[in-house]
Design a protein around this nucleic acid. Structure first.
Lengths: 345, 345
DNA sequence: CTGAAAGCGCTAACAT
DNA sequence: ATGTTAGCGCTTTCAG
């Protein structure tokens, strides 16, 4: 039905915005219209089709808000991105944004809408309760624990339909999906050491729990293999890291023969810094990243890195959440990271 | 108020979920509670504070859905990302995702929530009407016109609170915010030609209207300067472009001495392809990208590119939308792109 | 198979 | 300054 036809039809009857308008037009009750539009089989096939056709020809749209209120469910999943350590940054973080894209795909596929909320926990202590209590969402996915691990734990017992992307810790109460960061760190260190590295450097922030686990995994291996490892801390926000990495390279270049970067973004910056200082990769300094973002395959030389299964993670998050919405009590899902060997280590 | 205190208080009175519960507890009417929580000055200061304190101590949250239905506004802005030419791709497109991040920031700042909807126009012809008509959003921002220019135009007359990120065309009816892509193309071509280029290549898709404008801008300059230009088409999805670019380079390397890549992502892939074939940049082939994504500064050599003001774009989108929500009738906003000279041209 | 009626939880006249 | 009342638009018993 074209727009023009619709206008013609409306001219005869005035706008039809509510189910009651439609009912009057069809000569039935609002209840019947509601049932007809819902495809309820109780209603006579002929009237059902008549009503559905009428609805379409008038461009009628069900008011979701009213429907939501009545049914006490919204078909909307909240996605919260807490920005703890470094304000502003993470929301433009390539990894999180990619995950968000896949989440949007996955939720759409399953018939849910996505409400995105960026959150500054220091300004708004009650961010999670407020999101949950708003009545606007059926469940919530939290992307990244940031420094809010405890607050999430507090909520987890009283609110089931919540799943979190992040790191899994022994005995935690909230349902989490995420890579085995410790194993990822292990794989990275093993690769570097197998290539002959004797003094490892870890570049990246170490407070975020995921990154701490990556460092810990690498440290385990280093200790076991009798190799030294030292963390060279950076912040998370892209603009600052470049300088910080440059400073580390300027002052400590002789101290290591291999770098494990906490993320591919950091690794790319390292690669550039090394190149600018005439350091050959991997001959003089080996380098492994983390994430396997698309950019990892496009650097020169292409980046050896630890792949996180982002699409799989998104699928897992949605899967578990929907099962929790059914009342099931789900375990956490730990995804195995994978070493992707390219040319930097 | 800690969680434990809250539990204590609740133990005395049962759960307090609705405004009516709270009213009973406070010994006033629901109306007064509603006013008190809204900070309405009509209500007595003492009772107002008493009610607010009571609400906090019971962890009371207003049901937004009910509120929305009654007030006929939701405080939610819809953000639609139509995926026309290349399914799946754009939602993970770095540029769009970055824009989305800034939009989330900007909307949050202004007190709005963001409902994200990824949309496949070929499967769902009515995507825009359905989003608008759902009653769940007060206004809509469309990120990218994709191949939906006409549909957006159709809707624009009947629905005011809509702003679109994309390309501005003479005489169009929908309010759009976007870079002057034609000017961007012009700047790119000028830079290349000033460096001595005689035969330009344009790498990228040419159907999307933004990209077509970039190519057109470059073509204008080429024609005026007596320089040749030819488009080497690619698709949008990241996985296919790499091969396509490789194929172009293998078959047509001698045909050009400069590349204008439609996006930085493409430019990075070009850079890699050229490097692998032993072609020096910029000595043998000059290269200019588009967007100025963070990665542009991190390539080797760093990428000369045309910057789009993403943050400014997001601010503009939200600004115009909110003014439209006030009933104002806003003009489109065309942002000037800026040549960022680094080392590839 | 359909209609009538109650009500989701909140807000905003309108009253006092 | 507060209470009362009538809905917002829809869904779902409960009757018939």
């Amino acid at each position: 039905m074209s727009k023009d036809e619709r206008v013609d039809v409306e001219a005869e009857s005035g706008p039809v915005r509510t189910i009651t308008d439609l009912a009057r037009l069809a000569g039935v009750s609002a209840g019947t219209v509601s049932r007809a539009l819902a495809g309820n089989s109780l209603v006579n096939v002929k009237t059902r089709e008549r009503i559905q056709h009428l609805a379409r020809s008038h461009g009628f749209q069900l008011n979701q808000v009213a429907s939501n209120l009545r049914r006490q469910r919204t078909g909307v999943i909240g996605v919260a991105i807490p920005l703890g350590h470094d304000r502003r940054q993470q929301i433009s973080d390539v990894f999180f944004m990619t995950l968000l894209g896949y989440l949007a795909d996955e939720l759409t596929e399953r018939g849910y809408d996505l409400m995105l909320r960026r959150v500054l926990p220091d300004r708004d202590v009650d961010w999670l309760d407020r999101f949950i209590g708003s009545g606007m969402i059926d469940g919530v996915i939290v992307i990244g624990q940031s420094d809010q691990f405890e607050r999430i734990e507090d909520v987890a017992d009283g609110y089931r339909p919540m799943v979190v992307w992040g790191n899994h810790s022994e005995g935690q109460r909230h349902c989490v999906v995420g890579s085995d960061n410790r194993l990822g760190g292990k794989l990275a260190a093993e690769r570097l050491i197998a290539g002959g590295a004797k003094r490892l450097a870890f570049f990246g922030a170490t407070e975020p729990i995921e990154f701490a686990a990556r460092f810990a995994g690498a440290s385990d291996v280093a200790r076991r293999m009798g190799v030294s490892i030292k963390a060279y801390p950076t912040h998370l926000s892209a603009d600052r890291t470049a300088e910080e990495i440059a400073a580390h390279l300027d002052h400590h270049l002789g101290e290591f023969d291999a770098i494990f970067a906490a993320t591919d973004s950091l690794a790319v910056a390292c690669l550039k810094g090394l190149h600018e200082r005439g350091v050959r990769v991997p001959e003089q300094v080996r380098l492994v990243g983390f994430d396997d973002l698309p950019i990892a395959a496009e650097t020169m030389p292409p980046l050896t890195t630890i792949r996180q299964d982002i699409a799989g993670g998104a699928r897992g998050l949605v899967d578990l959440l929907l099962r929790r919405l059914q009342g099931e009590d789900t375990e956490s899902l730990v995804l195995p990271p994978q070493l992707i060997v390219r040319a930097t280590a």
